[in-house]
């Protein structure tokens, strides 16, 4: 379980996050939505340890964390695959270097995970020869082989076509079925509606609404959320 208490972030004179608190339970898929500059990505950066300028507590399964590397797995926006490595090397790299697995074992685990995502025939392909959806799946495999306790996605469907988006949603749901809490930051509201169990609407660094996905999309409580939905949602 991920628990965030009174998380604030101020960079220079800009207050990015304003005392936000929320929980993501095991098996939950929580999406954080909001306009540009609402502070969505900053939350992920803080959780991952990429942004240190914050106050507040982050608890994973009750343990307070300061640096997120051992707890959180991040699938970044745009994948950021290591472009000089093949798919299997992208996935096995951290197993070898961080978990110190022998090459053969790391390779076998990587291949097994890529196979789960239907990429067995792409093991030796370089990122430049993979499609957007394939890259996204390699990025997910690269993250989950490290067995994070919480999985974070930053705009997982940006720049993907509807069919690939559907595949990625299925992949996220399959991962969620294993019980891992998943936090997704997105501005893709149709995707959020299809995947989320829980929605946090962030507005100017504050949580404007925190509710179940069904309730949020059918009957948002706050006026701001209602306006945001009417301005942004497309029929799905």
């Amino acid at each position: 379980m991920l628990e965030i208490n009174k998380l604030s972030c101020k960079i220079g004179e800009d207050r990015i996050l304003n005392s936000i608190s929320f929980k993501v339970l095991p098996g939950e898929i929580c999406t954080i939505i909001g306009g540009s500059g609402a502070g969505k990505t900053t939350i992920l950066r803080i959780l991952c340890g990429l942004e240190q300028r914050f106050t507040g507590d982050i608890l994973v399964n009750g343990d307070r964390v300061r640096k997120g590397a051992n707890y959180f797995g991040l699938v970044p926006q745009g994948c950021s695959l290591f472009s000089h490595f093949t798919a299997v090397d992208n996935v096995s790299y951290a197993l070898r270097k961080v978990k110190k697995y022998p090459k053969a074992r790391a390779h076998a685990i990587a291949a097994e995970n890529l196979a789960k995502f239907g990429l067995l025939d792409k093991l030796t392909s370089y990122p430049s020869s993979l499609s957007g959806g394939q890259k996204q799946r390699v990025a997910i495999a690269r993250t989950i082989v490290m067995e994070p306790k919480i999985l974070l996605f930053d705009e997982p469907t940006s720049a993907l076509d509807p069919e690939v988006t559907r595949d990625i949603i299925e992949a996220i749901k399959t991962l969620s079925a294993t019980g891992i809490p998943i936090l997704i930051v997105t501005h893709d509201l149709p995707m959020a509606r299809r995947v989320a169990t829980h929605v946090i609407y962030l507005d100017s660094g504050s949580i404007a609404e925190d509710s179940g996905a069904e309730e949020f999309f059918s009957n948002p409580r706050s006026e701001r959320a209602r306006r945001f939905l009417s301005e942004n949602i497309q029929p799905c």
Partner: peptide, 17 residues
């Protein structure tokens, strides 16, 4: 791409690696 640096950091790799 700086994203690669950040991903590797989140994966737990050292700065030298």
């Amino acid at each position: 791409d700086r994203g690669q640096y950040e991903v590797a950091k989140v994966l737990g790799c050292s700065r030298l690696q």
